[in-house]
Computed example of a mutant assay.
Amino acid sequence: MDTDQSSLGTLYLVATPIGNLEDMSFRAVRTLKEVSLIAAEDTRHTRKLLQHYEITTPMVSYHQHNEKLRSEELVKALTEGKSIGLVSDAGTPGISDPGEELVRRCLEEDIPVTIVPGANAAVSALVISGLSARSFCFLGFLSPNKTERQEQLDQLRSMKGTAILYEAPHRLQKTLKVLLEELGDITVSLVRELTKIHETVWRGNISRAIMEMENQRPRGEYVVLLQLENDKNAETFWQDWTLEQHMDHYLSQGQTKKEAVKTIAKDRGVPKREIYDIFMK
């Protein structure tokens, strides 16, 4: 499509604070004051930020439930020469938040798109987690679809480095138990309330994390970082153990006997029934 670039508006992807309002950049404030319109994931939430910085630019909602329809409306406004600032509730738009669809549509229409960088929970958590930042992957929230979630977990088993996930507090325990069963008792770092007063970083084995979370009430969205060590030594750490020693290892890590049976079977690549018949009968 041939388009007169000078007649088009620009889409600005504007990162906003993930907690501490002082993390808003000068450029982000100026951009949101100068654009014609702000597209916000939750206008009520963003209004608090705008009021803090005395930004009076009009807003429209742009969230997962109206993303496709609203994208067309915003593209039309951009082709008419209006500039738009896209913001999510926190962090960088498009990272586990709405934005992908609008960016794609803008690029299809040759509409200029630029980034006003700033806070990002995944990268911020990575650099304070104590885990390796040399090689990492970001999966966002695990899929609620069972088949897709299993594909994500299978992908993790074949990787080496640090994997970064997001998780809601009410699902944290369930997710940790799934990760333990699928990946073994690897090192995990749990980061929450980034840049806020109660910012915390916890690190240890997954089994220990499960025990720790049982003694407290998780609050605030978590960033879960996994240390993936899919090399030969990590995969066969148990190779000189008897089955009894293998079982004792996982019991000492806080697993139940039933959970340990599943983990041992996965470690050794044998049918679960084979281990079950030895320990559960």
Rank of each mutant, 00 (worst) to 15 (best):
L78F: 00
L78V: 05
T79F: 12
T79A: 12
E80H: 14
G81W: 03
G81F: 02
G81L: 04
G81R: 03
G81Y: 02
G81T: 02
K82E: 04
S83V: 11
I84V: 05
G85N: 02
S88D: 02
S88Y: 08
D89Y: 09
A90Q: 04
G91Y: 03
T92K: 01
P93D: 07
I95P: 04
D97K: 00
P98F: 05
P98M: 08
G99T: 10
E100W: 12
E100Y: 15
E100H: 14
E100M: 13
E101A: 11
L102N: 02
L102Y: 01
V103T: 06
V103N: 02
V103D: 01
V103I: 11
V103R: 02
R104L: 09
R104V: 12
R105G: 04
R105L: 10
C106K: 09
C106Q: 04
L107C: 11
E109N: 15
D110P: 10
D110V: 10
D110N: 15
I111H: 05
P112K: 07
P112W: 08
T114K: 13
V116Q: 01
P117Y: 04
P117Q: 07
P117H: 08
G118V: 03
G118Y: 03
A119F: 06
N120T: 13
N120Y: 07
N120V: 13
N120R: 05
A121I: 10
A121V: 07
A121D: 05
S124V: 11
S124D: 11
S124M: 10
A125C: 07
V127E: 06
V127C: 11
I128Q: 01
S129H: 04
S129A: 00
S129D: 00
S129Y: 00
G130L: 09
L131I: 11
L131D: 01
S132I: 10
A133L: 06
R134Q: 15
R134S: 14
S135I: 12
S135R: 14
S135L: 08
F136D: 01
C137T: 15
G140R: 05
F141N: 00
F141E: 00
F141H: 04
L142H: 05
L142I: 09
S143N: 03
S143Y: 12
P144W: 09
N145F: 13
N145H: 15
K146T: 14
K146F: 14
T147L: 13
T147M: 13
E148I: 14
R149Y: 09
R149F: 11
Q150C: 10
Q150A: 14
L153F: 09
L153Y: 08
D154Q: 14
Q155C: 14
Q155Y: 15
L156V: 12
L156E: 00
L156R: 02
L156C: 01
R157E: 15
R157I: 07
M159E: 12
K160E: 13
A163T: 12
I164P: 05
A168C: 08
A168P: 08
R171M: 10
Q173I: 13
Q173R: 15
K174I: 05
K174H: 09
T175S: 10
T175L: 14
L176K: 00
K177L: 08
V178D: 06
V178R: 08
L179I: 04
L180H: 01
L180S: 02
E182P: 13
L183W: 02
G184I: 06
G184W: 01
D185K: 14
D185W: 09
D185G: 10
I186D: 06
I186E: 08
T187P: 05
S189G: 05
S189Y: 00
L190F: 05
L190M: 10
